[in-house]
Simulated scan of single mutants.
Amino acid sequence: MKRHIFLATVLIVLAANPAMATTLPQWHKDLTYLSSEALAGRKAGSDTGAQAGDYVQKRLQQLGYQTQVQPFAFKQGFFQQGQGRNIISNDCLQNCVVISAHYDHLGHSGHNYYPGANDNASGVAAILYLAEQLHPLRKHITFAAFDAEENGLHGAKHFVENKDHDAVRLNINLDMLNLPRANSRLFFYTREPLCPMAKTHLDNSPIKTQLTRSNRSINRRLDGERIDWLRASDHWAFARQKLPFIFVTAADAPHYHQTSDTLAQIHGKRYTQTLQLLTQFIGELLGAHCDDFHVRE
């Protein structure tokens, strides 16, 4: 489906339901577009993948951020090279907390495409939400939408390898945030000590959370494949360079890498609570009560 057909469909829906135009939260609008057929699965190196990056950049600029496009090349198959594009806010110059999410996905196969609503439009919509909520802290935060994660974390690796390590205080990486079931948990996987004030938000959250330091504690709550969560997403690019990280994921992803990973599978209430929790958690983490990562003027 071409972009104009998708937009026409949206207009028809809104015309039939005029209240939707004003009542839909911005995260829902972001998720709707990023997982739409118009973007055909956001494959790294594709035209629609670039359009997804353009969308993220425009949204950050609308929120008052300075941005840059960070191009890079990555291996694509045995003999081809792809061209990726990281979208980076650059209001923070040193001692930055990098809040990241990858915006690429699997693209399409024949007439079918992979929407990637949970993986990882949910993470991208979250960084856009956080960019708005945490705008007063913009000189201490870098928002990073990484490309080519699905191909081997290439965007995150390029960012880290071309960044002064002294400029990175902490990476908070968001990947697959949907909580599909009432007993699903949001995991905060880190090797770093967290101050009690930040952990209090996790303990008092309306959604189930778990602070963990090992693969075992995540995997034992999931059925099926045993996953190395340390290397599962872009935070690994930071960890391998001995930079501190917090990986936030629901892990429970029944539609992982399937064409059924659609907006309809996102549980709106729990996702909203997740966004609110992340805002409180990160705000507290950077606040004066937390000595490990709080911002210093």
Rank of each mutant, 00 (worst) to 15 (best):
H4E: 13
G110L: 02
G82D: 06
A126E: 05
I12V: 10
S184L: 04
F187P: 10
G77Q: 07
E297I: 00
G268V: 07
R42W: 10
G49F: 06
N178D: 14
N215A: 06
G116W: 00
H267L: 03
N173L: 11
N204E: 12
L202N: 13
D228Y: 05
N215R: 03
N112T: 05
R185M: 13
R42D: 11
A15Q: 07
N162S: 13
T67F: 12
R181A: 13
Q62G: 04
F146R: 03
K199T: 13
L31I: 09
L230Q: 05
H165Y: 10
Q265Y: 08
N118H: 08
H257F: 04
K75M: 05
V295N: 06
R42P: 10
Q51T: 01
E132S: 10
S184N: 07
A144V: 13
I88S: 09
L211E: 05
T262Q: 07
R231F: 00
I141G: 11
K58C: 02
T67S: 14
G41E: 11
L60A: 10
T212D: 06
G49R: 02
L275N: 04
G152K: 10
N183A: 14
E37S: 15
A253V: 07
Y271L: 08
T249V: 09
A237D: 05
H289A: 14
R85M: 08
H111Y: 00
K43Y: 11
I5H: 12
V295C: 05
A50N: 01
G152I: 08
Y189T: 00
T9R: 13
H158M: 06
R296P: 00
A44G: 11
N215F: 03
K157C: 00
H165A: 14
Q68S: 15
S122F: 04
M20S: 12
K43C: 03
Q68W: 07
A16L: 15
V248N: 11
Q51C: 01
P115H: 01
D47T: 12
I88H: 10
A121N: 06
T279C: 08
H158E: 14
I282F: 09
I246Y: 06
A288M: 02
V295W: 03
I266T: 11
A131H: 05
Q66I: 02
K139P: 00
F159V: 14
K2V: 09
H294W: 03
L130K: 12
C290I: 07
Y256V: 00
A239G: 00
N215G: 05
T209Y: 08
C92F: 09
